[in-house]
Computed example of a mutant assay.
Amino acid sequence: MSDWLIPLAEFQKGLAASGEDFFTGVRHGSMRALVYAPKGSDPQTPHKQDELYIVISGTGRFRKGEEVRPFAPGDVIFVEACAEHRFEDFSDDFLTWAIFWGPDGGE
């Protein structure tokens, strides 16, 4: 996608067509913006860049290191580069924005 305003519906179409649990719809420099919708469990491992999640729909718990907190739509979750993290016990309608940026190792 090359536009600067992209509706969520376009990301959701890309997600459905991808067969993956994520779809990257915007890239610029080191920044990537995507939607993420794991099913059943969250298999992700630590990332090299800083990351921001903005929950679109669904509820559950988020684990960062040893700390676990509930999340709901509208919540913003920051994860620094290389931190262990994952979504747990999330509802079937869970969907979140994920935005990565910056150098490997974080800012």
Rank of each mutant, 00 (worst) to 15 (best):
85 H>S: 10
84 E>K: 09
70 P>N: 06
79 V>R: 00
88 E>S: 05
73 P>V: 04
65 G>F: 12
59 T>F: 14
63 R>L: 04
82 C>S: 14
81 A>E: 04
86 R>Y: 05
61 R>C: 09
67 E>D: 13
71 F>I: 04
74 G>L: 12
88 E>G: 02
59 T>R: 15
55 V>R: 01
76 V>K: 07
84 E>C: 08
83 A>I: 02
84 E>L: 09
76 V>G: 14
64 K>P: 05
87 F>H: 08
82 C>P: 04
84 E>G: 11
61 R>H: 13
63 R>N: 06
64 K>A: 15
79 V>P: 00
59 T>A: 15
53 Y>M: 04
57 S>I: 10
70 P>Q: 07
58 G>D: 13
66 E>K: 13
59 T>K: 15
62 F>A: 02
65 G>C: 09
62 F>C: 02
83 A>S: 09
62 F>E: 00
57 S>R: 14
68 V>W: 07
53 Y>H: 10
79 V>N: 00
82 C>H: 07
73 P>S: 09
77 I>M: 01
78 F>W: 07
71 F>W: 03
69 R>P: 08
59 T>W: 15
55 V>A: 01
62 F>Q: 01
72 A>H: 15
60 G>N: 08
67 E>P: 06
85 H>Q: 06
75 D>Q: 08
69 R>N: 12
69 R>S: 13
82 C>W: 04
75 D>P: 09
86 R>K: 14
63 R>D: 05
64 K>V: 11
75 D>E: 10
66 E>A: 13
68 V>M: 02
64 K>F: 07
72 A>V: 15
75 D>M: 08
71 F>V: 05
86 R>C: 10
78 F>R: 08
73 P>C: 03
67 E>K: 03
69 R>C: 10
82 C>R: 11
63 R>K: 06
60 G>C: 09
55 V>N: 01
70 P>E: 11
72 A>L: 13
56 I>A: 05
85 H>N: 08
57 S>K: 13
82 C>G: 10
55 V>D: 00
62 F>Y: 02
59 T>Y: 15
77 I>F: 04
53 Y>S: 01
83 A>K: 03
70 P>A: 07
86 R>H: 06
87 F>V: 02
63 R>Y: 04
67 E>V: 11
80 E>N: 09
69 R>A: 14
74 G>S: 06
83 A>P: 00
82 C>Y: 04
76 V>I: 10
73 P>F: 02
55 V>C: 02
59 T>P: 14
88 E>D: 11
76 V>C: 14
83 A>R: 03
67 E>Q: 08
54 I>F: 15
79 V>K: 00
77 I>Y: 04
77 I>K: 00
53 Y>N: 01
78 F>C: 09
57 S>P: 06
67 E>W: 00
82 C>K: 12
85 H>M: 05
54 I>S: 10
77 I>R: 01
84 E>A: 14
88 E>N: 06
57 S>M: 11
55 V>W: 01
66 E>D: 14
55 V>L: 02
73 P>W: 01
81 A>R: 03
81 A>D: 04
63 R>T: 07
55 V>G: 01
80 E>H: 06
62 F>K: 00
76 V>D: 06
81 A>F: 01
62 F>R: 00
64 K>H: 11
67 E>R: 03
67 E>G: 11
60 G>S: 09
72 A>E: 14
67 E>F: 01
87 F>A: 05
76 V>H: 05
53 Y>D: 01
